[in-house]
Simulated assay, not measured.
Amino acid sequence: MRRSTIRSTLCWLALMLAPLNVQAAAPAAEKVPEYALDPTWPKLPLPNHWALGLINGIHVDAKNHLWLYHSPELVPKYALGAAQTPPTGKCCVAAPAIIEFDEAGNVVRAWGGPEDAKKQGYDWPSAGHGLYVDYKGNIWIGGSQTRVGADGSQPDGLYLKFSPDGKFLLQIGGPGPSKGSLDTTQLSGAAAVDVDPVTNEVFIADGYGNHRVIVFDADTGKFKRQWGAYGKPPTDEKLPRYDGGPELPKQFNLVHCIRSAKDGLLYVCDRLNNRLQVFKKDGTFVAEQVYEPMTKGSGSVGNVSMWPDAKNTFMVMNDPGNFETVILRRSDLKELSRFGHYGTYAGEYQRNHQMEFDLKGNIFTSEDFRVQKLKIVNGVKP
């Protein structure tokens, strides 16, 4: 075959294949936000020589303020010189458990901890976990401990609700061991909540000890309904964690997050099974997706947060087992980008626990003793 004939044939093939190639490449060309560390957030040092313990939860409210929940009792002893009697150094004292930061990273207010609980007459979690700001501005926190601690502390079977200034409003459950995943009076290591502004229901990821989503009235604490994986009744059967194979587990293994989208769908993180499951508000199963199926350790699906546009086009997902941030397209749960790696320097992740969008699409990440802010650098906006 002559060279001219070969060249003509190749050009014809290229023209015939071009529409297919363009169509296949369209999703990859989707404008996805890209990020870089914002070293100006928060404003440091924190006031009053404050030091932070383990970061238990973060959430962004309707004013674009970040709320942070940490464990004051887990500030390292070497950092508490100013709290000793007499002081052994100028730094530091443990910060209050709940801190509100404004958009610029300044502390707005802070409150909470075991002493506040004693004064107001409610139970404080033994091992704090999760913070959520509901549509009324109220603050929800829980705890993840499922056994009696070495210090005699009780398992966390509760979730708490407060006003923005720290006034105690509601306690669901109480300290003590699980009564089983079908019991409606007690939680067990509940990891996260989401509150529906339409029905005023609180959806709880009751997942360190129990294996379910459970729903209560957000004002009275009255039980409404519950479900396990695939919308089936939850069980307490001891199941092995997912092994990465084709057969997916029939029950949850550490329900670590729950988050609602504006269209009413609920997204549930089944952390140790490396998957995200989607439900309607009544518990009807809709879809699921597995990510990095061979991941062990902390698992690959830690939490999700919704991109703040009208359709919640994207989600950010925390992958704690691989020390990465993942951007998903919400409509089909497809992974669009993945970045991050292990390390202790600014912009790296050591024990990434939670990732949250703010109202401008920036991302906040929490670890044991710090929160970092990642800002959009490619002009994509919600």
Rank of each mutant, 00 (worst) to 15 (best):
L13A: 10
M317C: 03
I204S: 06
V32C: 02
H70W: 13
T365E: 06
G244M: 10
N273D: 09
G112T: 12
E73G: 10
F323V: 05
K232D: 07
F369S: 12
P197Q: 13
L15E: 00
V377L: 08
L17K: 03
E292V: 07
Y208T: 05
G121Q: 11
A18S: 04
Q226Y: 14
D319N: 01
E335F: 02
T365A: 02
A28C: 06
N21M: 14
G152T: 14
A36C: 09
A150E: 15
L68G: 03
Y159L: 14
K375F: 01
D61G: 04
D38C: 12
W12H: 13
D196T: 15
H65F: 05
P293I: 02
S178L: 09
I99K: 03
G143I: 11
S331V: 12
H65I: 08
W67C: 00
G340A: 09
K118E: 01
I376V: 15
L272I: 14
T40R: 09
H256P: 01
L158S: 04
E335C: 00
L15Y: 07
Q154M: 11
T313V: 07
N312C: 05
L266M: 03
A83F: 06
V278S: 05
F162S: 07
V255A: 04
F279P: 05
E356H: 05
